[in-house]
Nucleic acid binder design. Structure first.
Lengths: 153, 153
DNA sequence: GAAGAAAGGTTGTTGCTACAACAAAACTCT
DNA sequence: AGAGTTTTGTTGTAGCAACAACCTTTCTTC
């Protein structure tokens, strides 16, 4: 019960902390920032919508709306996938890249200041392990953490 | 970075898991359930709006909207506080109590199945500690976990 | 090779949350 | 006691997310 209450509290509080800093300093929601960040790390800064939905752990419907808004703001562009006529590719524009680069330092500082700096090295390690155990149930496919699994089996 | 990605993933995934089960089985959002649960544990099943906002870690504005909707559904009732004419008390109705009692078992089972059962006893302990360390920054006043602090100082 | 199922996306609607503006009661200070 | 400030709460608005309906293309199967 103690552990559960703490987990609930964190889940309820953290999004607000992330959103408000990014919205204030960069005009982006955390989810928008995350979408741009995933694209920025992808091959050719391009991903298919489905792949992007996986990495951001969102539904295709949600992502479609968000990407349309990002496209309206010139941060992303969409074009049909050459290999599969059903699919759509999303690519980061130069302006989108600039936006990520501009937003990243403040975001990282915020994360450090409000989260990681409060933990000891040992606790960070424990958080990683406990996180893996939780995600084994919440995200069996490991879609979101696929990018960073040092001890991959 | 590994720890951070996992934390993000959990924060993004958990609300959906909680919301969808409760909405499907009880017609309540997780936040609504949490509000009702806090009232159900309070003295006389009554709390002032400000106190309820603290315990649920929400703003007064958000809570005001939610309580109005719950009142429309007959689960909660509001009445002016006798001791302070500015304040409003929210009280769980009989129907609200029944709703909590009906929803609780499924919710608890969901939490166990999707979260706690995946962790060892040692990991639950670690989660509690790491959670405290995180909340020291996110919620310095400890408003949300005030209800359950076995080793209170 | 045609019918049906699955994959891949988009769009419209509804409901909730954040933000800001507002109002009333209660302190504070002289 | 009166002016200003703080506390307590409500309401209106705008924006985002969940859900469902829909469309197109690809795969499967006979």
């Amino acid at each position: 019960m103690a552990a559960w209450l703490r987990l609930i509290a964190i889940v309820e509080l953290l999004p607000g902390v992330l959103d408000s800093q990014l919205r204030r300093d960069a005009g982006l929601s955390h989810f928008e920032y995350f979408v741009l960040a995933m694209l920025s790390e992808a091959e050719a800064r391009t991903l298919r919508m489905t792949a992007l939905a996986h990495r951001t752990n969102s539904t295709l419907a949600r992502l479609s709306h968000v990407v349309r808004r990002l496209e309206d703001r010139g941060l992303v562009e969409r074009f049909p996938c050459p290999e599969d006529a059903r699919a759509t590719n999303a690519r980061l524009t130069a302006a989108g890249w600039d936006a990520v680069v501009a937003a990243a330092p403040g975001h990282v500082a915020n994360v450090r200041g409000n989260v990681l700096d409060g933990l000891s090295a040992e606790q960070v390690r424990q958080l990683t392990e406990v996180g893996d155990a939780l995600l084994a149930r919440l995200d069996p496919k490991g879609a979101m953490t696929a990018l960073y699994r040092p001890e991959d089996a």
